[in-house]
Design a protein around this nucleic acid. Structure first.
Lengths: 357, 357
DNA sequence: TGCTGGCACTCGACTTGATAGAGTGCTAAA
DNA sequence: TTTAGCACTCTATCAAGTCGAGTGCCAGCA
């Protein structure tokens, strides 16, 4: 993607062109207006005349890095231009100490009763004045703490299970026969003593294995328990989900003030599907990842950028968080912001954490 | 509010004027354009010339029922005009059988595993193409089914309790001493045997009473149990909440395409406070209630109307549902729609229900 | 060879003026 | 009491004109 730099056209994309591109993007991000050659001549420290800059701009336009909305307007960065900018040109600013303090305050493990995910999302959106998004930690990496059954009418059983420290999940399963409360209690006891402390994926695997191989070894009660566990931890039970806050902040940006775009975007938010898929992709990479405009592949996000970072608990990636805003966002601030938030959240979610960083 | 009708100015607000107001509102609702005297003359069955109608319009304008955006535009209903219309003039249309079928399908008790509240909200928004809102049933009228404690680190205890048939709630409480799992189990057993089946409010009252009066009668374990119950069922534990769907539908309406208005509205939605307060007011009245524009008292809703109805389980009002849309909405359809949905939802939530209506 | 000043040109934003159409208020007549 | 007619008002729309920002290109200069 950055292949243009220094291959065939080294002489075109030299240091100076890159410097000008950088200045242009910075200027456009802060102003929102197409940047003309005169402004660029003043802004950059290169002491070049507007005429020279126009020549360079023409080259950058040929390379698809900038674009002119119309004949006599300045230049605006294209998606490729932004890409080059965030990949190699941007000079990230260290987080303002005010913001850092707020993040620390919000994301310390002290107060276990508040929902960290929610807090993180809110911090992201409030401090960046854009939309913040945080996925719930992946259940594969989540430990079963306790399970409990409660009988309902019509062969239905309410399964309640607690994961990690304090997250409560519940699901209704349909059983083939009616269980007495005592039987349910017994089943729960068996499952708790056997599987408590193990990860949900490993529990699921173990359950499947027992059903296939060890049936003769088990008594009826154990078999029932394992069967119910299978139903309870069935794949795709709790769909991965995310917490999104500050969507309304996005309504302030002029590039999103087009009602159709905005509607598409908000519909994408409420359907969740696309967003989840996008965030899933970010989970694979470590560190900060950025989707600019159409790069995401979802039309609804055409005029948005997404700056994400995965967050990890005990060196395992368990989720993703990020900021959604207009393509024209202050990447140099947002990138470190997302980075730090991800690290703090990971640390805060770590049960045996001392304050990190 | 409807006091103008037939008091001092009977001769002004006579049958004919009302008929014309009705026609005007209907026409404006369907067109969205200010209605002129000529159009009104054709639309109404009164066989009056435009000139006559202009005289009537001038009277209606004096009474504050209609309003001219500018000198040579037609008339538009004011809030008072809408009020009079929905209170006395509107002829509600019976629900289309297609919609009725869909409502019945969605809101029958058969499938207990899906969330009725969510379904109801979604039906409201999808079938009306506006936003649907449904409050969660009031907890005062909710029965405790089962309670369970789980110890966490640092004197914290995770309380899980199940209400009604299958709703699971959880809360973390801080205790003064550290309990062993066995002690917690014992406390849960005591509470389950004592309070299971009673409403949350009555449990709360009973707990308070025991703590104040019957302390000497109880052993230590019971006392601990009751203390924990008090913490768990503390007032304001689960804040009343609502499920809102189809907000994005509102972005299609021209009267809400002003970005500022829209932003205010969506911020009100995400803060929830104001909406909850508004819905609470509706809980007091039975049947369909309507807030038009500024009547709600919340600036964010200035250009919206809210058509609500409380819904009841076993003859007790437990919640409110409604539709939010632009002031210019098809009241004659929405009113019966909300009415029927409320009745169906109430019936569906009734544990021992046969299909109603 | 690369940079710069100059010049003609283009395009959008804004202003102005003219026109058509919808709808009103008022008055006088039926 | 209703109606027809008329003058008036206001909006929306279009065309024309102007201004300014910015470009592309060319010729000259270091």
């Amino acid at each position: 993607m950055v292949a243009e730099v220094g291959v065939g056209n080294t002489q075109v994309l030299n240091e100076r062109s890159l410097q000008l591109l950088k200045t242009l993007v910075e200027r456009y991000i802060s102003d929102g207006q197409p940047v003309g050659s005169r402004a660029l001549s003043k802004d950059s420290d290169l002491h070049l005349s507007p005429a020279t800059i126009r020549n360079v701009m023409a080259d950058l336009e040929d390379l698809g890095l900038v674009h002119s909305p119309h004949t006599s307007a300045g230049r605006v960065p294209t998606v490729s231009g932004y890409r080059l900018f965030v990949d190699t040109l941007v000079t990230v600013k260290p987080l303002e100490s005010k913001d850092l303090t707020l993040l620390h305050q919000g994301l310390t493990v002290s107060d276990g009763s508040s929902d960290m995910i929610e807090v993180a999302s809110r911090l992201l959106s409030e401090l960046t004045q854009m939309a913040g998004v945080v996925t719930l930690p992946k259940r594969e990496l989540v430990c079963l703490r306790h399970i409990e059954f409660l009988s309902l009418s019509n062969n239905r059983v309410l399964v309640i299970f607690v994961t990690n420290e304090q997250e409560v999940h519940n699901k209704i399963i349909h059983t083939s026969k009616i269980f007495s409360p005592a039987e349910l209690q017994q089943a729960a006891n068996y499952l708790n003593s056997t599987y408590s402390g193990r990860s949900l994926t490993s529990v699921r695997k173990a359950v499947l294995k027992e059903l296939q191989e060890d049936q003769e070894r088990m008594n009826n009660g154990m078999l029932d328990a394992v069967r119910m566990a299978q139903l309870a931890f069935d794949q795709g039970n709790d769909k991965d989900d995310y917490v999104l806050t500050g969507e309304t902040n996005l309504m302030g940006f002029s590039e999103l003030s087009n009602m159709d775009r905005l509607k598409n975007l908000f519909e994408a938010f409420s359907q969740k599907q696309g967003v989840i898929h996008l965030l899933d992709q970010c989970m694979k990479a470590e560190g900060v990842q950025i989707f600019i405009g159409e790069e995401s592949g979802y039309r609804a996000f055409d005029h948005c950028s997404l700056v994400t970072s995965s967050y990890s608990v005990s060196d395992e990636v368990v989720g993703v968080l990020g900021v959604i805003g207009p393509t024209r966002m202050a990447y140099e601030k947002i990138i470190p912001f997302v980075d730090v938030t991800a690290k703090l959240l990971g640390a805060a979610l770590n049960p045996k954490a001392t304050t990190p960083l």
